[in-house]
């Protein structure tokens, strides 16, 4: 399994080649694709009952779910950065036997159905799981806690950070790092002063994707963490539950989730442009 490496061509290359532009016919499937993505969003907006919107999204259960979602997604994004940056460094800057296999394994949650991730986490950290007994002896119980939500989110979101940062690291190359090293900078200084600033856009992209993926996490959470208001019931779980009794509330909350996602992406774009 080989992964495409994100990143635009080097500026010099882009300048030398004349822009050809895509063949005209691609606009037809491209437009169809865009409509396919945008239309359902429009349909949600069309279905919102605005009269009760505010009451629905500011109910106790909705606010608890939104707050929990934001809190857990922010925490899991931090975890993704903390774990993902070193992982991407190791994958991009070193080579050792079995690295390809390791890369595929690390990126596996990307292609795994989240429910499978939840089951895997359950049999690892659950009470009767692989580490369950050890954890219980230590007095740690993960299941049905907010920590379980964060673990589920981190599990599914981590590959997004690793894959985008590894791409950015490979694209930025090692020239500047090598120069800094010859000028006497130690590996940690090179990492902090050269490597990180160079790949900051890739890191930001990865962090945003991780946050968005955490925000939308459903399958692993419901399988591994459970569903209790204020503790484990995040916004997607609340939406799914509200659908049972009050489809209007589910639609209103869906719109909130869409807005939060748009806001996050917009903020980062604005930050990049500034």
């Amino acid at each position: 399994m080989s992964w495409p490496r994100p990143g635009s061509p080097h500026p010099e290359v882009a300048n030398r080649t004349r822009a050809v532009g895509p063949p005209r016919w691609v606009f037809v499937p491209a437009a169809a694709g865009a409509v396919f993505v945008v239309l359902p969003l429009a349909a949600i907006i069309a279905r919102v009952r605005w009269s009760g919107f505010l009451a629905l999204v500011t109910s106790d259960s909705s606010l608890a779910a939104l707050a929990l979602s934001l809190r857990t997604s922010a925490t899991s994004t931090l975890l993704c950065v903390g774990l993902g940056v070193p992982m991407a460094m190791v994958l991009a800057r070193t080579s050792f036997p079995g690295q390809q296999v390791l890369r595929s394994l690390v990126l596996l949650p990307l292609v795994l159905p989240p429910v499978v991730g939840g089951i895997a986490l359950l049999y690892t950290f659950g009470r009767r799981g692989l580490l369950g007994h050890t954890l219980e002896v230590l007095g740690i119980q993960v299941a049905f806690t907010t920590a379980a939500v964060i673990m589920a989110q981190t599990f599914v979101a981590l590959p997004f950070l690793v894959v985008s940062l590894e791409g950015a690291l490979r694209t930025s190359g090692e020239r500047y790092e090598a120069v800094a090293a010859t000028l006497g900078a130690g590996p940690t200084t090179v990492f902090r002063r050269v490597t990180l600033p160079l790949v900051l856009p890739g890191l930001a992209a990865g962090a945003v994707l991780s946050f968005a993926r955490s925000l939308g996490e459903f399958g692993a959470t419901i399988t591994f963490a459970g569903s209790l208001q204020g503790v484990t019931r995040t916004l997607p779980l609340e939406i799914y539950l509200q659908r049972e009794v009050d489809p209007d509330a589910a639609v209103a909350l869906s719109l909130v989730l869409v807005l939060v996602a748009v806001l996050v992406i917009g903020l980062v774009r604005a930050g990049r442009a500034a």
Partner: peptide, 23 residues
């Protein structure tokens, strides 16, 4: 900016391709 967008697109593409396969 461009690189950022490209990264996002690339990752999303991988995501969707995977989704199509398993979904």
């Amino acid at each position: 900016m461009k690189r950022w967008a490209a990264s996002v697109v690339a990752v999303l593409l991988i995501g969707t391709a995977a989704g199509c396969g398993s979904g």
